[in-house]
Computed example of a mutant assay.
Amino acid sequence: MDEFERQSEERGWATAKTLAEALPYIQIYDRETVVIKYGGHAMGETAVAKQFAADVVLLKLMGVNPVVVHGGGPQISAMLDKAGVKSNFVDGLRVTDRDTMAVAEMVLSGAVNKEIAHWISVAGKEADVRGIGLSGKDAGLLTVEKTTRTKRDPDSLIEHEVDLGFVGEPTKVDPKLIAGLIASETDDWVPVIAPIGVADDGQTYNVNADTVAGAVAGSLHAKRMLLLTDVKGVMDRNGDIIRQMTLSEAQALIDDGTASGGMIPKLQTAMAAVRAGVEAVVILDGRRPHAMLVELFTEYGAGTLVKA
């Protein structure tokens, strides 16, 4: 046996060992719904997008029901820059005027949504697993209301309302369309949802993708919600990753300042999703290859798990 054959044999035994160790976790997630928030700058890299799609297809083939909710902030910003439109942000939320809303919907519901659905369909072609692109406007999936924010003047300490334009917050999720796709006995669909919603008056709004993912996961009573980000997870004061925490521990991290910046809304989204009926939410690094598989099918996972 030459060196190549020896290494191939060792890889074969290692693969078999990995599959055997994953069996208990595969059984745990069999026919369970997992909502995946896909975002971050890695979305713009074709190789990473293809790997993500392949992992989603593998989840489907292993008996999991994946539902993808995606963002697209960098793509929106790039398109606005090309159009010469300057973006303003308040507390991390893009101020969205009518022109910006039109661009946001075009990018999110169009290019980004369809590309993700396409790569899932390509990865799942041989197994007949197909991605299907949707937005919150389809079949009354996501009803929203205009977001209101207040900001305190640092000099006068007087709070005043900030108009974010066409930015919305979910008020209702109608999961019938998603549930129907998941339950289909003739096709293996993977819903891919753009974070666009409609208010009762018919106005279209841009919605934070993390918030949409949490609302969708709650409506589906998902087993897990995976928040794919650009960081490993939630860090303690020593810079070490926290593997697991309760809702009260998550709130304490926000209150004492350990969690700061963009991690605060992610923890708030995780807590809201758990309160809405999701068993647990995991914040993990979506840039790492196979992070979702490591999280769901190995003992220690790949990020920070938040549960009741």
Score class of each variant (00 low, 15 high):
241 I>V: 15
1 M>V: 14
124 G>T: 10
23 L>M: 09
279 E>S: 05
178 I>S: 00
189 W>L: 09
221 H>A: 10
130 R>M: 10
207 V>P: 01
124 G>Y: 02
31 R>I: 05
96 T>P: 13
24 P>R: 14
197 G>S: 05
267 L>A: 07
9 E>V: 13
217 A>P: 01
41 H>P: 02
97 D>F: 06
2 D>E: 11
107 V>S: 04
90 V>H: 09
8 S>R: 15
42 A>W: 00
72 G>R: 00
44 G>C: 10
74 P>T: 01
252 A>C: 02
164 L>Y: 07
218 G>L: 04
108 L>G: 06
255 D>F: 08
140 G>S: 01
291 A>S: 14
127 A>C: 07
178 I>Y: 02
291 A>D: 06
269 T>M: 07
36 I>T: 02
230 D>L: 11
49 A>N: 04
168 G>D: 05
127 A>I: 11
126 E>Q: 14
158 I>E: 15
206 N>D: 01
96 T>N: 07
125 K>L: 11
172 K>N: 12
300 Y>I: 08
190 V>E: 00
23 L>Y: 08
177 L>N: 02
35 V>T: 06
305 L>S: 01
201 D>H: 12
193 I>Y: 01
145 E>F: 01
157 L>Y: 15
94 R>L: 13
85 V>F: 09
270 A>Y: 02
260 S>L: 06
282 V>C: 07
55 D>N: 14
10 E>C: 00
104 A>P: 11
152 R>W: 11
237 R>Y: 04
